[in-house]
């Protein structure tokens, strides 16, 4: 170790991976429906895409988590985005590409992707 910069590089490389272990202030939560229906419809690649994208972009204070059946099995894979102080947004019929877009537009730029939401899909 010859410089502080070297130390900082190791720190940044590892922190992204283990940061989830700290108690956080209330942040954004992305929840993926992972009951049998969700898994069968392809929720796992969606979940992986979300985790990957969130960490690639280095967005802080976001957790990606799973939940059971959200109730609209025909619209799976479903994900829900909880932003503190805002109403929950439910996205349906997701795939990895759509998931990546949700992270970049909704999480990073704070613009929900209306066309994927449950309201749009039902019309």
């Amino acid at each position: 170790m010859k410089s502080l910069a070297e130390l900082e590089a190791i720190r940044n490389k590892t922190l992204g991976n283990i940061n989830m272990r700290q108690d956080r202030e209330e942040g954004v939560r992305i929840v993926v429906g992972m009951a049998t229906c969700g898994i069968a419809a392809g929720a796992r690649p969606v979940l992986n895409a979300l985790v990957d994208e969130v960490s690639k972009r280095g967005v802080k204070n976001v957790i990606v988590s799973q939940t059971g059946c959200i109730g609209m099995c025909r619209l799976e894979p479903i994900i829900e985005v909880y932003v503190p102080g805002k109403e929950k947004v439910t996205y349906v019929k997701m795939n990895p590409e759509k998931a990546v877009r949700v992270v970049s537009e909704h999480i990073v730029n704070q613009q929900p992707v209306l066309e994927y939401t449950v309201g749009e899909a039902e019309q």
Binding site: N17, I18, M20, R21, L47, N48, V51, D52, K56, V64
Partner: peptide
């Protein structure tokens, strides 16, 4: 496949 896939510890 990166380490980034780790979603749970």
């Amino acid at each position: 496949v990166t380490m980034n896939l780790v979603r749970s510890h």
